[in-house]
Amino acid sequence: MLTMNDIVRDGHPVLRKVAEDVILPASLEDKKLLNDLMMYVQNSQNPVIAEQYGLRPGIGLAAPQINVSKRMIAVHCSDEKNNLISYALFNPKIISHSVEKAYLTAGEGCLSVDEAIEGFVPRYARVTVKGYNIDNEEVKIRLKGLPAICFQHEIDHLNGVMFYDHINQEDPFKPIENAIAIERM
Rank of each mutant, 00 (worst) to 15 (best):
H166K: 15
G131E: 05
V129S: 10
K140D: 02
N133T: 08
L143E: 01
G109N: 05
F151H: 04
E137Y: 08
F120H: 11
K130Y: 07
V127F: 03
N136D: 15
D135R: 14
E118T: 04
V139K: 12
A148L: 07
V113E: 05
A125T: 02
P147I: 13
G131F: 02
I155Y: 08
R142I: 13
I117H: 03
H153N: 08
I167L: 05
F151E: 00
D165S: 14
L111Y: 09
C150Y: 03
V113C: 03
L146S: 00
I155R: 06
Y132M: 08
K130L: 12
I117K: 10
E137I: 06
N159D: 12
V127D: 01
C150Q: 05
R142T: 13
N133D: 15
K130V: 15
I134C: 00
L146T: 05
E115A: 09
E115G: 01
E154N: 05
I167A: 01
G131A: 09
D135E: 15
D156M: 02
V139Y: 06
L146H: 00
L111Q: 10
E154W: 04
E154P: 02
Y132E: 06
G131M: 05
D114F: 07
K144T: 14
V113N: 04
L143R: 00
I117E: 01
E115I: 09
L158D: 08
D114H: 05
Y132K: 06
Y124D: 13
H153A: 07
H153W: 09
S112Q: 02
G107H: 05
A125N: 12
D165Y: 11
E108M: 05
L143I: 06
N136I: 10
N159H: 12
K140I: 14
C150E: 09
P122G: 08
G119S: 04
F151G: 01
K130D: 12
L143N: 00
G109S: 09
